[in-house]
Nucleic acid binder design. Structure first.
Lengths: 182, 182
DNA sequence: CAGGTAACTAAGCGCTTGCTTAGTTTCTCT
DNA sequence: AGAGAAACTAAGCAAGCGCTTAGTTACCTG
């Protein structure tokens, strides 16, 4: 799975051959099929576990914060850090899921919607208690997720900034975007 | 090129066959090679003309605004609208360029850097004349581009909102992000 | 330490891929 | 009308693809 994550992240699902994955894992081409029934099954396992890991992270971050402001700040920092530290898995999660079979795609889409509504709920609570000022919570949630998700697109391990620094930057941008603390 | 843009945007460069492109253009498989020497050449032509079109759009938007605030607002609205209206080309521009040959990739990367610095310059001028308050103009420019670029990822023609509406939303978010008008 | 199971490989099958070749049709211009 | 160029197609080649099969090695358990 690690070899597949690396290859899918680097070249995309269709540009990756099962021979790439096998040799990346130190196996013969047939060795992959002892553990996975198909290349798509490998993508699905990676995609599902990646989505679940990101979802757990979001829930934990929200659980840690006492106020919507704290929750948003922690959530944005941790979610961004995850996209940096796990940038290979994150790329698979964000950019390869449409290569899944329709059934598998539907399963993963449900997890993605859940992530979206977790963020929107934090915004709505912040608006309700007056901490945030936001025109439309759906649009703003989407923009927040765009900033974090896009990290997986531009990040490269050659970049010097640490995950914590990038996370803190995005957390600060998030607070600005919702008008917290004016 | 239109058939290729549609196929590349829908399935990605490697998942698209030259036969897909040919039949999309109403040609036989060999007919494509009358006009393009290879599949990669087709991607390069699309990618370059797409980047150039986006770059022209940014320059025009900046030229229209009298102040950095106006420039940022127009730029963000137009750039977002472009990602909606030309979402197939935009997807190729944003997500397929790493499948180019090293030489072609380098050429396109130069155009991408140019786009980035156009946005950062607007931010810097806004900070200089006191209209914006921004911690780091590079980080903020990246976040602004993330919000706009990500439109190509989530947009679908089934969505009811018009390009203009989405553009206006993102322009408003951009002004918030740079602390304009407090 | 025998017996069963899981992990693995060498070889390769059937198919699809990007692209070519040889030949035909369509267009353009005088 | 007719020549030359450009646009196109039918057929197919060599290479690479996902995946299978038959057989071998490594491992765990009683």
């Amino acid at each position: 799975m690690q070899a597949a994550a690396q290859a899918f992240a680097e070249k995309g699902f269709h540009a990756t051959t099962t021979r790439d994955i096998a040799s990346g894992a130190g196996l013969s081409p047939a060795g992959v099929y002892v553990h996975f029934g198909s290349k798509e099954e490998l993508l699905f396992n990676l995609s599902r576990s990646g989505h679940e890991s990101a979802l757990r992270l979001l829930r934990r971050a929200i659980g840690e914060g006492a106020t919507p402001t704290e929750q948003l700040e922690t959530l944005m920092a941790r979610f961004t850090e995850w996209h940096v530290e796990q940038y290979q898995v994150a790329r698979v999660v964000q950019y390869e899921h449409h290569h899944l079979t329709p059934e598998h795609h539907a399963e993963v889409l449900a997890l993605r919607k859940e992530m979206d509504s977790l963020v929107r709920d934090v915004l709505d609570r912040g608006v309700a208690d007056g901490a945030f000022s936001v025109d439309d919570s759906a649009d703003t949630a989407l923009a927040l997720l765009s900033i974090a998700v896009d990290v997986a697109r531009w990040y490269s391990p050659t970049i010097k900034r640490t995950p914590t620094e990038i996370g803190a930057t995005n957390a600060a941008l998030a607070l600005r975007l919702v008008g917290a603390g004016r």
